[in-house]
Design a protein around this nucleic acid. Structure first.
Length: 313
DNA sequence: TCTCACACCTTTGAAGTGG
DNA sequence: CCACTTCAAAGGTGTGAGA
């Protein structure tokens, strides 16, 4: 799998603006592409921050992958977890991040299982896979199964692809059959309030839920450079037609660094009252590469948002 | 550094409408 | 029935004051 970036004691507030980090990570013949790579890179250059709240906060940007190289009829479980990048606690000095202390111990055992899991390789490969429902919390006693992180620490998300229909009841994410993928540009600082104003502005610019804070109209803010790829847009969703798979029959457990959790329990923790059909991203439909065929194939395609958002995104 | 109420926004899905 | 529209509720945002 791809390597993590080397930890630095101080983190420049502005990284190189020349090149994007690679959108591709391969493992055992399986190729995973970070679909919204341009947006991740734009945030990464300013040192991405993700808000932690007691009740759980979504990530923005969130992780969205395109996968190829899976066996079509093999079933897989897709799992995300978030690991510390280093053993350091940071502080924001008004200009950049700097190391200030030893890290709090990482809280193990919390992962996010993609709600479509398990599904066939064919299924995972036919459209981008989004993890926008993953939530982060700073509540060590969080009852909702969200991923628990420490504020002012630095983290890197990981994607694990786990072959599913083995007879074994316990899956070890460090096991030999598990494929793990990381993308350095998805690294972030966990915070309870934004530190860097540039990050706040990027969130406001790109997250549709923060539209209320944008300065629209004639004057005001200088127009920012727009992301070149429409596939980087994210936030809105449309329904797709997917088959429901009853996870509760599998009885599979997930072993996260020694903590074994029944898959059934995790599923109910993370996705209570979720319909089996998953939601895909708006920009997925906006992307011309996907428009061909997808609209024909998907009777639930909803054009309402497309026209509405194209201008402002 | 963290939490909370808040205004503002998007998303969702039920109800309504017309063919 | 189906496709489409309308509308209100639910829920995702950053803010800013206060702890």
């Amino acid at each position: 799998s791809c390597g993590a970036p080397s930890p630095e004691k101080t983190v420049s507030s502005v990284k190189s603006t020349v090149d994007n980090l690679s959108a591709v990570c391969s493992c055992k013949g399986v190729r995973v592409t970070l679909d919204n790579n341009n947006m991740w890179n734009e945030f990464y250059r300013c040192n991405t921050e993700m808000i932690l709240t007691k009740q759980g906060r979504r990530m923005f940007p969130y992780c969205r992958f395109r996968i190829s190289g899976l066996e079509h009829f093999q079933r897989y479980i897709l799992v995300m977890d978030i690991n510390p990048v280093d053993n350091v606690r940071y502080k924001w000095n008004g200009q950049f991040w700097e190391a200030c202390d030893k890290a709090e111990p990482h809280i193990l055992g919390r992962v996010f299982i993609h709600p479509e899991s398990p599904s066939s390789g064919h299924y995972w490969m036919q459209q981008p896979v989004s993890f926008y429902k993953l939530k982060l919390t700073n509540n060590p006693l969080d009852p909702d199964g969200h991923i628990i992180l420490h504020s002012m620490h630095r983290y890197l998300p990981r994607l694990h692809i786990v072959p599913a229909d083995k007879t074994t009841e316990v899956i070890q994410l460090s096991g030999p059959e598990v494929m793990t993928f990381t993308f350095p540009q998805t690294e972030f600082f966990a915070v309870t309030a934004y530190q860097n104003l540039r990050i706040t502005q990027l969130k406001i610019d790109y997250n549709p839920f923060a539209k209320g804070f944008r300065e629209e109209g004639q004057c005001c803010r200088p127009s920012k450079p727009k992301l070149e790829s429409s596939s980087d847009l994210e936030g809105s969703e449309a329904k797709s037609v997917l088959s429901a798979i009853d996870l509760s029959k599998s009885g599979t457990k997930v072993n996260v660094d020694g903590v074994k959790l029944p898959l059934k329990t995790l599923k109910s923790l993370f996705h209570t009252n979720e319909p089996p059909d998953e939601l895909l991203d708006q920009e997925f439909f906006n992307n011309k590469d996907y428009d061909i065929g997808l609209m024909e194939n998907n009777p639930l395609f909803n054009t309402r948002h497309e026209t509405e958002n194209k201008s402002s995104w």
